[in-house]
Design a protein around this nucleic acid. Structure first.
Lengths: 254, 254
DNA sequence: CCATCTTTGTGCACGCGTTCACAAAGACAT
DNA sequence: ATGTCTTTGTGAACGCGTGCACAAAGATGG
């Protein structure tokens, strides 16, 4: 039933791998910086360093777009900026609605990176009548009742959900029903959407927990002689009374 | 030189795959919800549906932690909550500092999901002297000058960077020098960190661009007879004057 | 105690993504 | 025109992640 699918499974639209698509914005950012410094060309090695990836990976990524480099020279910065922008669809206008204007929603509305690349905040929507009409980031907040009308009038296809978890699925359903086919979800919930709708999630809590996992590993490495690596800069956190398997919780399985 | 590495390459600490670690918080969230409804046990099928993943994947994920299920019955909810929490390191206290108290930093400070699972906002730090002392989310903002002291006094090992892009690398360097070994980066920049330091990034702009890519694909599918899927609900966006390869940019490569 | 039924745990195969390593291609100097 | 030097583009191998499909394990009922 495709509930909560985040990365798309294997639809790979025209041959550009999903992993490559996810890196294109990174390259674009690095290239834009070079462009502003009027750098004419760049080698895969330099650009890869700027984007924080392997140079072979970068070359293979670009090879999916076509042969835009010149051997012995590198890539033309301006040309590549245009090609990647076009491939990502950033040469057109993407109206975006943000639903849920709390702390996070307001921060997103104020975020400059939005407007920079083809994205335009078409509307801010919140369920709180007290907010209706109040400007946030220069845009008046509209009430949830008008959600469908806003989506349709402005032909919005991308929605950002920044509501509490409890409201997210309902908002999502309404967005999709009104015609939104891409959703960026900040609410800590798994969203169910029909086929043909893309969902990407940004989950602060999950990221922190992943960091905590690795952090814990760095601290407690008593048992099992180290498998190499783990060189320096490890604060030796003294109170490591967290037995690797010792104590049992109050509750036991039947 | 390991610059800007996000997912760790292949260090796989004790056999738990990175992909599994990334899903554990998802399972934990679903299990916590079940726990609050006093559900005693859950099958892999049910839990997988709640977490939005394949049931076989979930079972394999759990198998890396050990054999915590009972065949014919399922998994004990409370026990699994504890085991996953322990594995993720959430049974201990993780002091976190947030650097950069702008719109986003303030939103993060107010985010409840922080405190819920072992994470504690130890300090808010900003370079603006005008902010120093002012409470945000009930915590007084401290000045960047005291960053090192705060990190060391509170034994902080996780830092959240919510500064503008220009300041991020510098803040990162100071955090790392002071002893932070895990960083969650919200600034749109590639961070360079020494080995042994984990960086995860949350980049709104990148997520939107990935969505735009797929959105563009949904709209313009003139050439190349569809490879199946893509059934309905596609707004037929009329003005598709974006030739798949036709027009050339103003700037051409040499 | 045995049969049946449910659900876990996992062997296996497949596909995607990454990386190495190198041949091909072009720039540039002589 | 020829040779050298740089850098791209990619074939091939490898490893990780995913999902199928099934045997093993235990619960449950007679």
């Amino acid at each position: 039933m495709a509930t909560g699918r985040t990365h798309r499974p294997a639809t790979r639209s025209r041959g550009i791998p999903e992993a490559t698509v996810a890196r294109l914005p990174l390259y674009l950012r690095a290239l834009t910086a070079l462009s502003e410094r009027s750098v004419p060309t760049v080698s895969s090695e330099e650009l890869a360093a700027a984007a924080g990836v392997n140079s072979a990976k970068l070359r293979k990524d670009f090879s999916y777009l076509g042969s835009y480099g010149t051997r012995g020279v590198g890539y033309d910065v301006e040309y590549l900026v245009y090609q990647i922008s076009r491939e990502l669809g950033l040469t057109q206008d993407w109206p975006v609605v943000i639903v849920g204007i709390g702390n996070l929603g307001a921060a997103l509305a104020n975020y400059g990176g939005f407007a920079s690349r083809g994205f335009r905040v078409a509307a801010l929507i919140d369920a709180d009548p007290g907010l209706t009409g109040k400007p946030v980031a220069g845009i008046p907040v509209q009430h949830t009742d008008d959600l469908e009308k806003i989506i349709k009038d402005d032909r919005v296809s991308i929605g950002v959900i920044a509501t509490p978890a409890g409201a997210a699925q309902q908002v999502c359903d309404r967005l999709v029903a009104a015609g939104v086919t891409s959703i960026l979800n900040f609410a800590p919930t798994v969203l169910s959407v029909p086929d043909g709708v893309d969902v990407r999630k940004v989950d602060l809590s999950i990221e922190l927990q992943i960091l905590a996992f690795h952090e814990q590993r760095k601290s407690g490495e008593e048992t099992a002689a180290g498998d190499g690596a783990l060189p320096a800069a490890v604060t030796p956190r003294d109170d490591a009374d967290q037995g690797p398997d010792g104590d049992v919780p109050a509750v036991m399985p039947a």
